[in-house]
Amino acid sequence: MAQAETHVRGESAAQLLRRAYEQAYEAGWTDGLPIIPADRDTVLEFIAASGRDAEELIGVLPPRKGRATVEVLAINAVMAGCRPEYMPVIIAAVEGLLDPSYPLELMQVTTNPMTPFLLVNGPVRQKLDINYGTGCLGPGWRANATIGRAIRLILYNVGGALPGVYSKVAFGSPLRYSYICGENEEENPWTPFHVERGFQREQSTVTVFKASNFCNISGGEGVGPEEILRQIATNMPPMYGGGDGALLLLGVNHARSLYEAGLTKRDVQERLWQLARLPIDHFAETFSSTECAAGRGDVHSVWRAHSPDEMYVVVAGGPGPQNVYIGAGMPQTRVIRGL
């Protein structure tokens, strides 16, 4: 990545910040929102917080083949408004995005607005105040807002995926500003997501999903486990481009109800997989035939996922009869090192 050094002057701090924002905007370095100027001392502070060398190469980001060194990641983290201590999370997330099985290049160039979704597990959630409870996917928490934003700036500035050149995204998506939350492990009656994937409960991890949408599913209070799951599943229809799986952010109330009814997380996955189907004649023939050929359907119906294994269940959010469904799959989990 070619790095630019610019000099901005102002009569006051406010004027200086405004000019820095204008400069970054004109240069195409931002997502459109104001940035924090990445001055040399601040960048050095962020590099130190990462525990790594400035020149360490985390990877090469497609499609521009930009070199994501620790220094480059630090610059984007500063601009996004991060605190220095967020650096290990950002580095781990970028490592996940660069896994050969993760379709980052496709995501960077396609007309579809798919975007990474980041799930954070472990003690790092408390340490960095990453929201996993009330309002965890919305505005108001600095870590959630700026870590996700730093990832987007990295994908733009290092990967070169600002729309109109390499990215051909037709509409884009508000999810591309920041799409991240923690798992509500404290109110999860089952095993946390990262432990299911073979990590220790005490380890901190970040998992990157290939995500396509956001759907809040309301309702299903006091109706028993079968109706809760039916209410959720009927809002998870098969969808074009969503064949990699479904991520359910199960609300704490429903998680508790299902657990107290004796269901394991595997039971929930299997029942959702059975229920999230629609009659084959509901769909365009080209779509249904493609899905059936991919193992997501039969002569009667089209299914949301190939198997229960692709119905990912995570507990998150605050009290209330709400759940969130994300068309998401291909998770890559990395340990957050150097906290």
Binding site: Y25, G164, V165
Partner: peptide, 9 residues
């Protein structure tokens, strides 16, 4: 009206 871009075009 071409987009701004950090990629020099």
């Amino acid at each position: 009206g071409v987009v701004r871009s950090s990629v020099p075009v």
